[in-house]
């Protein structure tokens, strides 16, 4: 295949990575922004989303689409409830002390990972996509007959992959609307900016934290449900999303939601493109280098505030 079509395919793969990453990193970013908690277990909530999606799809085995829709609703919900419970049982008990929350969430990481290994097992398991029509993509060239539309062999995608991008955009738009247009969003933003004053104006800050921690985990789980028809569910799948989410949140600016989206698109696209042309390892190396550069030259991140 020529460079042009090849690059288009790589960009499409990159857009899918970016879409999933935007959801996952947004979860991490919201939790850090509102609660100032660095959630090391975030990748495990992602993994749990994928694993629960497999269980749900497996139990509702009537039709792949039905199983998938059920998973898309149930997995984020269950993971969110679990995360909210973890917040109440662990983070609240240690008073959100920064050092102890890191240790606490590392513990949570291993508890979730090992429990999944014991119940789900070490195998990678696929979930059927709800629909998966192959779509060919046209290309153009200037051949002997002048400008021509051609359909290169192998240049194509599937309807499901396009759906992933679309679904991520819908979920993020919904999140943005909730944050900026609703009372719940107002309460979350007020708590983020000054939790003591929020409390002095009647905000039950502990309850808000439990909701936010649940919401952050649910976003990761939603990303995982979307990815699991493309990648299989596996108990160790949380590592990469955690690393990439941290990279995105640092580049975007800690706690800045628009910054998170921009950085997710940048890192996701470059990860997809570099992985296709070179290797996934090189993609991670470059992303890590970018983080190092950002930390040196703009420590607050792209859209972060210099002194929060």
């Amino acid at each position: 295949m020529d460079f042009g079509p090849h690059f288009l395919i790589a960009s499409l793969e990159g857009a899918i990575t970016a879409a999933i990453l935007a959801l996952t990193a947004m979860g991490l970013s919201i939790v850090f922004g509102v609660m100032r908690v660095v959630n090391v277990a975030h990748g495990e909530f992602y993994m749990l989303g994928a694993v629960i999606a497999w269980w749900v799809a497996h139990l509702i085995g009537i039709h792949p689409a039905l199983g998938f829709v059920a998973a898309l609703l149930l997995a984020p919900l269950l993971v969110g409830v679990l995360a909210a419970a973890a917040d109440k049982l662990i983070l609240q008990k240690i008073g959100y002390d920064p050092d102890r929350t890191i240790v606490g969430t590392i513990g949570l990481l291993y508890i979730i990972q090992q429990s999944t290994l014991m119940t789900f097992g070490p195998d990678a398991r696929p979930v059927q996509p709800p629909f998966n029509t192959r779509l060919s993509i046209p290309w153009f060239e200037f051949g002997d007959n002048g400008f021509e539309i051609i359909w290169p062999w192998g240049l194509g995608t599937t309807s499901y992959k396009l759906f992933v991008i679309f679904a991520a955009i819908v979920i993020l738009t919904g999140l943005w609307a909730v944050m900026t247009r609703t009372k719940i969003g107002l309460i979350m933003r007020a708590t983020q900016q000054d939790n003591e004053m929020a409390r002095a104006f009647g905000v039950p800050v502990e309850r808000v934290y439990a909701w936010v921690f649940g919401l952050g985990a649910a976003l990761a789980a939603a990303g995982a449900v979307l990815v699991v028809p493309i990648q299989q569910a596996h108990y160790l799948m949380g590592g990469d999303p955690l690393l990439l989410s941290f990279i995105v949140v640092i580049i975007g600016g800690l706690g800045s939601l628009p910054g998170t989206v921009i950085a997710a698109i940048f890192i996701g696209m470059s990860d997809g493109i570099i992985s296709v042309f070179f290797s996934p390892t090189l993609a991670k190396i470059i992303a890590t280098l970018v983080v190092a550069m950002v930390l040196v030259f703009r420590p607050q991140g792209l859209l972060g505030k210099a002194n929060p």
Partner: peptide
């Protein structure tokens, strides 16, 4: 009602939103 030292507004919320937070309390 509490008017704290140093004002302690929600600095990135608008005037209208700061008032809204106050209204929500009761």
């Amino acid at each position: 009602g509490y008017v704290p030292q140093g004002r302690r507004l929600f600095p990135e919320l608008t005037v209208s939103e700061n008032i809204e937070v106050g209204l929500m309390t009761c």
